[in-house]
Design a protein around this nucleic acid. Sequence first.
DNA 1: ACTATATTTCTCGAATTATCGAAATGATCC
DNA 2: GGATCATTTCGATAATTCGAGAAATATAGT
Lengths: 120, 120
Amino acid sequence: MDASLAVTALGALAHEHRLAAFRLLVECGPEGLAAGVIAERVGIPASSLTFHLQHLLRAGLATQRRLGRQIIYAADFAAMNDLIGFLTENCCGRGLSARLTTAAACTTIAESSLAKRKAP
Amino acid sequence: MDASLAVTALGALAHEHRLAAFRLLVECGPEGLAAGVIAERVGIPASSLTFHLQHLLRAGLATQRRLGRQIIYAADFAAMNDLIGFLTENCCGRGLSARLTTAAACTTIAESSLAKRKAP
DNA sequence: ACTATATTTCTCGAATTATCGAAATGATCC
DNA sequence: GGATCATTTCGATAATTCGAGAAATATAGT
């Protein structure tokens, strides 16, 4: 993932309603959720929701598929992992070569969850 | 970290120049970098840079201190770790409690490549 | 074909964000 | 105290984003 893609993804998540919608999608897994349900749960009109879902789609953070008369959105976990990978490597002191004593500060998280996912 | 704080932080990073500046700060570690140097390296006028650095400050992603006649900015690694922690727990399928068989799916994706993500 | 349902597109005003030069502030050196 | 360097604040302008209703599109059932 390059910086400009990351900016797009970050921007897509940097909004109350979009973050809420995305978290909802994450909760539902690959199965996804119909647009109407998302709108209702997030508490915004359908047209507004579409506007925001388009953001997530453009950023590659969500996918869309039709199921009968409804359209199902699902979180794209791979994209989200890429984003977290980018942040971890480029914005957190990790993945930056030796001259950083900073690495230690960040190692904390490295243990707890991901980080070893992409051994150099 | 709560959602609204995360939105602020994501928004702060969701801009080409701010992300560039922040990455620069991360590279420099706690030692930080003078505003002038950042402006030069990012390639924008000083007044524009200030505007963006204020964003990072407000979001808690950077700190400010004066050193002689220059003002040194440094990345706040703890805040960044909090953000990554939030994303990992709330937006990535991990850290979501039991009723999710989805968690497994996300982990799988993380490990391998993804491809078969579209299973019913 | 007609009706109902689900969602998107369109449109436009309001609000926010971005850009940059000029002027103001703060600190240092003589 | 005056000159100078580093940075921020101000102000004007341009661009983008947001919100929501109305109209349009697609699907399903009768």
